[in-house]
Write a protein that binds this DNA or RNA. Structure first.
Lengths: 154, 154
DNA sequence: GTCGTTGCAAAAAATTTGCAGAAAC
DNA sequence: GTTTCTGCAAATTTTTTGCAACGAC
């Protein structure tokens, strides 16, 4: 059973004139199921069961292609800058869990528009794109961390 | 004449028990004067006049140190992910000009707090940090681009 | 069958480490 | 004078390129 997200990305690939291949399917499936930010090497590892012998080079090429098509998005983190995660929405932003690296996307609310308008006025920049990444602890990891919660003032 | 920002960073270095050396001064001065995001190699090039023979290795080490101290900040851009720029404010966000790469910082307004609160409720994440980067065209480059402005519907 | 895609090996680029000499305090 | 810092060379790690074989359409 393959994920809906992976399927929709295949459509995007096809419409853009690219072929649906086993490595591409595998990579899409990995990112789709993970919902987390992965490095190229991690993606190779996880894609290997779905596509035996998949090469790291192919992973790089595929990630570049998929990112260009907007099927996946680059995720920046202080430690491993070149992570990739699925893009559920056209221009969603994301919250990254610093414990399990799970990525959840959310729609940019009108509040972001307010920030942009304010900064635009303040600086005179004509702002046409933005990168918003929130970092924290996801619900699952919060539960597991509850023993040390008082340390954080909980 | 050296910049105020560079001077204040020197204080930070000293207070943390690190020495003020010529390479460090040069790198601080470069970032301070540039106000833009630069790659380590670019920083080396620009620091060379101020510190002849400065090595790329030193640039890397110094950037890591200064970023850890919060004197400068890592800037993420799609093309060159590992850029560095000065940090004028403690936790400022920045607007990056996609033409000249100038970086202007702005204080995170309460609107960002609103976004965080909203996302926190939506996703259940406990959000404790964020990265907000706006991209666009700075006032200077807008002027130079005015000839092609109609292309963008201006 | 045709042409895009893959994987290997190798190249190139980016980043880190070891160490003796130089510099800051 | 002591200890930290620097720069070189070399080692790693990350990413890209060339090319023959393979696979999707």
């Amino acid at each position: 059973m393959f994920s809906i997200e992976a399927k929709s990305c295949e459509g995007t690939l096809q419409q853009a004139g690219f072929r649906i291949t086993r490595p591409r399917k595998a990579i899409l499936e990995v990112l789709s199921q993970t919902g987390g930010a992965l490095k190229p090497e991690e993606i190779q590892d996880r894609a290997a069961p779905l596509c035996p012998g998949i090469g790291l080079v192919t992973v790089y090429r595929t990630l570049t292609l998929l990112a260009d098509l907007g099927c996946i998005r680059r995720v920046h983190q202080d430690d491993h800058c070149h992570g990739y995660a699925r893009a559920d929405y056209a221009h969603g932003h994301h919250v990254v869990c610093r414990t399990c690296r799970q990525v959840v996307e959310f729609h940019g609310s009108e509040d972001i528009g307010a920030v942009i308008g304010q900064v635009s006025r303040q600086t005179g920049f004509r702002i046409d794109d933005h990168l918003l990444e929130l970092m924290g602890i996801c619900p699952d990891c919060q539960t597991q961390d509850s023993a040390v919660e008082d340390r954080n003032g909980g």
